[in-house]
Each structure stands twice: as structure tokens, then as C-alpha cells.
Simulated assay, not measured.
Amino acid sequence: MKGELEAERIINEFAMSLLEQSTVDEVVWDVAKNCIARLHFVDCVVYQLDRQRNVLVQKAAHGPKNPTGHVILHPIEIPAGVGIVGEVARTGQPEVIGNTALDKRYIADDAVRNSEITVPIWVNGQVWGVLDAEHPQANFFQPQHLKILTTVAALCSQKIKQVEMEEAYRRAERQLMETNRRVAETKLTALRMQMNPHFIFNSLNSINKFILQNDGERASDLLTKFSRLIRQVLINSRAEWVSLRNELNVLQIYLELERLRSDNKFDILFSISDDLNLDMVHVPLLITQPYVENAIWHGLLPMQGGKPQLQIQCRQEKDRLIIDIEDNGIGRAASARLQANSLTAHKTHGIAITEERLNLINEMYGADARITICDRYKAGSTPTGTHVCFTQKLTSF
């Protein structure tokens, strides 16, 4: 009874120790160490069967083979079916050798020892490896040792299966995350490529107007500005993020083109706070242009009286970038009525693209970027324009 209780205690200690291991390497090294510490063996080696080469490879050891850490001194390989270890791997049956001198299969490793015990480790219906221990004393290993090691091998098998399943799950999860990242990046690129032709097309309309009117001087002025615009857009379009300075440069050129096209019908007021580092802060490419375009086309140009005005303000509030776009135009309600009554209404899809881009950018980069649009009113609920606010975390590279 005392021997059975002791065996149960040792097995429980093995089981508790295995619970703390999270990789296959940790599992086999823990088993090898505990065989020495708890069973008072002289040495212990855990072999793994390399199925492609059909050889047993030493994966963990304790005793003279293990001078320090997770290091095996002069590791050896044993073909399956060769030696006592190889035979146990082939048959899947444990063996206890009382006197190795009488067994021709015995293969000495670091030293000749007189007794050996070898137990297979089964995983998913196949021999995964072998747990092997030796002792200089003949007939050292008793039936109790075999019972304990057989149970330990079964515990090791269960833990290896659990760890391999968890590792496979993590690999699949990483692969899925990588796939999703690639899909998101591809989609962002596609959306960005939609944005650039859309942006360029609207600018070309500005030039086309003066060409049709045979106004060479103004057409030449527009072409000069347009060439600068194209150059900057092409430079910026290589990346999803651009410096705030580059973004504002493109926006200013675009505004100059639209203002010339409309015969300087509206004024532009730019305001940039001094504490903003325009070269360090980065924003998604062309993130504000669709809203500026919308303010011009649907808010300012339809005005019948007063001086249309567009204000753009860039500032910093704590750890966030704020870009305010305000116009004193006719407001969204009046603009919607005009478009509903017009057979040739200008319908921009840039805003829809930008909203989709922002969702993807937030998922991929955690930028917490947002766009809010508010109507402005004066006393008596008369519309006085629209306020668009873009905000995101201060992002620098």
C-alpha cells in the first residue's frame, strides 16, 4: 500500500508539473528532469521519432547528457528498429532490461550502464517518441517504475496533443490575421486608386472649361498648377499615409484650381496652429479633399448672394489632430433639394470611398479616425453652411 501511495504521489507531481508547460520542448524537458528528481534515476532521455528519416532524435535529457540548461551533450540518433530504444519505437511495447550486458541490442550512449527501461509515447494512434532511462545497477528498474513511466508517458502524450493543437490553432489564427491584413491592404489600395482618378478628373474639368472658351492664358495657368498637382498626387499615392504638410499642399493646389475655375467666386481661409509639426504628423492620403470638394460644389457655388467663404483650420487638442472644414454655403438640406431637381446633378462618390477607407484604416492601424458633419444655423433656423470635422490620433512615423 505504501508503494502504491508513493507511486500515486509521484504521478500527481508529474501531472501538476506538466500543466505549467506550454510548448512541446517544455513538455519533454520537464519529463526528463522529473524522472531524475522524483524517481532517482541516473539519467533520462526523451527521443522523438523523425518519421521522414525514420530515426529517433534526442529531444531532451537529464543527467550526464545535460550539462546545463536545455543542452544535450553529443546528441545521437538511433534508427527505428535498432537497439532497445529503436525496437520499442518499432513495436510500441515498453521494455525493462535487467542486465544490458546480456542484450545484444543495447547501444551505449555517454557511458555503459547495466539496466535500462524504455517506454513508448503514443500520440494520435502512433508512436511519437520514446522515454528512456538507464542505471549502473543491474536489475534496478522494478514493476513500479514501469507502471509510473507508462502513466507518465500517457500524461506526456495528452499534453503533447494539447500543445500541438494549441500551436496549430495559433498558426491558423496568425495565418488568418495575415490573410485579413493582406485583404484589407489590397482593398485600401483599390480604394486609393479609385480616389486618385476621381480627384484628377474633377481637376481636369477646371482646365477643360477654359480650353473650350479659347482662354489660352487662364488655361495655361491652370495647366501649370495641374502639373504640380499631378506630381504631388503621384508622389503621395505610393503610401497610405502622408505627412500633413504634403496633404495640405495637395489640398491647396486643388483649391487654387477650383477657385480659378469658378472665376474666384469664393474665398479661402487657411489656419494652421503653430504647435503642429506638419512633417511629423501623418494622415491618410487625400482624406479631406472629398469634403472640401463637396463644400465647394454643393455649398458655396450654388449661393445667390453674399460672398462664399471656405475656412480650413488645422489644430491639435491633446493627443489628437483636428481639421475643421467650414463653409457659409446653402446647407445640406437646400443642396439636396437642388440635386433632386437637377437632371445633371453632380454626384460625388469620394465621400463614400473615404468613409470606407476610414473604417479599414481604423481596423488596421488603430488610428481612431472620425469624420463628423454638422449643419450651421443662425437665428430663426436659417442655414448658414456646413461644418465638417476630421479627427484622429496624432500619428507620426
Results as ranks from 00 to 15, higher is better:
Val31Thr: 14
Met16Glu: 12
Phe201Lys: 11
Lys159Pro: 02
Asn66Cys: 13
Ile353Asp: 08
Pro64Asp: 08
Gln58Ile: 05
Leu260Trp: 05
Gln48Phe: 07
Asn236Met: 13
Met303Tyr: 06
Val42Gly: 03
Asp319Arg: 09
Arg218Gln: 13
His198Met: 13
Arg181Ala: 12
Met177Gly: 04
Asn294Asp: 14
Ile325His: 02
Phe210Gln: 02
Asn12Asp: 09
Leu338Met: 14
Leu260Phe: 08
Asn277Ala: 12
Glu87Trp: 13
Asp103Val: 11
Asn236Tyr: 00
Tyr106Phe: 15
Thr118Ile: 10
Val57Tyr: 04
Ser335Phe: 06
Arg218Glu: 08
Ile121Lys: 02
Trp241Cys: 01
Leu269Gln: 15
Ala154Val: 06
Leu278Ser: 05
Ala340Gln: 14
His70Glu: 15
Thr179Cys: 10
Gly366Arg: 06
Pro284Thr: 09
Ser22Tyr: 09
Tyr106Gly: 04
Gly299Leu: 03
Gln58Met: 15
Ile107Asp: 05
Val55Gln: 11
Leu73Gln: 13
Ser273Trp: 00
Leu310Cys: 05
Ile76Pro: 00
Arg9Ile: 05
Gln252Ala: 14
Ile97Met: 04
Ala295Thr: 05
Asp221Ser: 14
Trp297Ile: 13
Phe270Glu: 10
His74Lys: 14
Glu217Gln: 14
Arg171Cys: 06
Leu39Met: 15
Thr224Gly: 08
Ile287Asp: 00
Cys374Tyr: 09
Lys104His: 09
Met165Arg: 14
Val283Tyr: 01
Ser227Trp: 02
Leu343Ser: 12
Asn236Pro: 01
Arg259Gln: 15
Trp297Arg: 11
Ile296Glu: 03
Arg181Ser: 10
Asp215Val: 02
Gln311His: 11
Leu358Trp: 01
Asn54Trp: 07
Gly380Leu: 09
His387Tyr: 10
Val292Trp: 00
Thr68Val: 10
Cys156Ile: 01
Ala89Arg: 01
Glu20Ala: 15
Thr151Phe: 04
Asn214Val: 03
Gln21Leu: 06
Ile371Phe: 10
His62Cys: 10
Gln316Ser: 11
Thr189Tyr: 09
Glu355Met: 09
His40Glu: 11
Leu204Asn: 08
Pro302Gln: 06
Val46Cys: 06
Pro383Trp: 07
Leu191Thr: 04
Leu222Ile: 15
Pro94Cys: 05
Gly3Lys: 13
Leu49Tyr: 07
Glu26His: 03
Asp25Ser: 13
Val88Arg: 01
Asn202Ile: 01
His40Asn: 14
Tyr291Ile: 06
Ile72Cys: 03
Ala172Val: 05
Gln144Ser: 13
Ile207Gly: 00
Ser206Asp: 08
Gln126Cys: 08
Phe199Met: 11
Asn202Ala: 06
Gln21Ser: 12
Ser342Phe: 04
Cys374Phe: 07
Lys347Gln: 11
Ala61Leu: 06
Ile323Pro: 00
Lys225His: 10
Glu26Ile: 04
